[in-house]
C-alpha cells in the first residue's frame, strides 16, 4: 500500500503521542501491580514451568 508524504510526516508524531501519552502511563501503572513479562529470577523456586 502506498502512503502519501503527509501520511508519512504525520505518522511519527501520531505514534509518539499514542505511545507516550497513552501506553506509557498505562504501562507504568500496570508495572506497579505486576510485571506483564515476569522478568525477575526466583532463586528459591524449583521451576519456571507454567501449566496450561
Amino acid at each position: 500500500m502506498t502512503r502519501s508524504r503527509w501520511t508519512d510526516l504525520a505518522r511519527r508524531p501520531a505514534l509518539a503521542a499514542l505511545y507516550f501519552l497513552v501506553l506509557t502511563p498505562i504501562g507504568l501503572c500496570v508495572r506497579r501491580i505486576r510485571d506483564p513479562l515476569r522478568r525477575s529470577w526466583h532463586a528459591c523456586a524449583t521451576t519456571y514451568w507454567d501449566h496450561p
Binding site: R11, L15, Y19, F20, T24, I26, G27, L28, P36
Partner: peptide, 20 residues
C-alpha cells in the same frame, strides 16, 4: 501489547516499527 506496556517508555523504536 503486553511487551510495549512492560517496556514503555524505552520501547518506542520497536513500537514505531511494528504497531502500524
Amino acid at each position: 501489547l503486553a511487551t510495549w506496556l512492560a517496556t514503555a517508555p524505552r520501547g518506542f523504536p520497536a513500537f514505531h516499527d511494528a504497531f502500524p
